[in-house]
Design a protein around this nucleic acid. Structure first.
Lengths: 133, 133
DNA sequence: ATCATTGCAAATGGTTTGCAAGACC
DNA sequence: GGTCTTGCAAACCATTTGCAATGAT
């Protein structure tokens, strides 16, 4: 009756995916991760990468970033921080200084929504693309 | 040499799509719009809807909302306002009170990004779904 | 034995695109 | 005539899924 948490095994594939994701500070897409992980596990499949990213996400070990654009990006840094997306080249970086964002969740009335969360994302031009202008 | 703005014609299809989009306060997906527009233009194709939404977007007459999830949503209300997405049913509504959001764009230094914009999106539970709990 | 997990391949589903016909200047 | 636009269908591409085989407990 109880909703038992699903028993998950830390398989070799899952561990390698998580390690890879934690080792980088960019925010790779599933296929970028697939390419990287394949160097250690040549027989791994893209489907497995997707399935494991989903598991890691549900377990709270990774974040899925929908920053617009076709592909999702993933982040193993689950500490609170914001993201900037370069409107020119599409890369996504962290923003660590959060002092300039001030959001007070509105009380649950208004049009009746009970607000449960906010997402703040920045657009910008990365240093590389700035130099190239 | 100059980048002339493309000459666009306000075709019947484009007008009907825009009218439909302006007439509703929800934020329809392309295929919802397609279904609605088809009542007036039974022979219109989904491809035409997509192409016109793209044109309207570039012309600044409509906004494309990427609120996560598979499909994009569109909005003909281009005045500044925020959106809430119901985490339960997926519908998207406007938030008109912006007093509780205070964001100061950071100066262009930090890791080097020149910040050009912010996106703020809310999650919540809509009144309908709240009642149904 | 049981049950999560995998590799593989096929399927899905939203969006885009090539092309020939049609509409507008 | 030139060019923007359309309908149709096929193509695209990220992601998901069915399934038989594998692995861990």
């Amino acid at each position: 009756m109880m909703n038992e948490p699903a028993k998950q095994r830390m398989t070799r594939q899952r561990q390698v995916i998580l390690d890879e994701l934690m080792s980088r500070k960019d925010h790779p897409t599933a296929d970028e991760l697939y390419a990287a992980v394949r160097r250690k596990l040549p027989r791994i499949s893209l489907g497995t990468v997707y399935r494991n990213l989903d598991v890691l996400m549900r377990s709270g070990l990774a974040l899925k970033l929908d920053m617009g654009g076709a592909q999702s990006r993933f982040d193993a840094d689950i500490s609170p921080h914001y993201h900037v997306k370069c409107v020119s080249c599409g890369r996504v970086d962290d923003i660590r200084e959060t002092g300039f964002v001030e959001i007070t969740l509105p009380p649950s009335r208004d049009d009746g929504y009970a607000i449960t969360g906010v997402r703040v994302e920045f657009d910008g031009i990365c240093p590389q693309c700035r130099g190239r202008e």
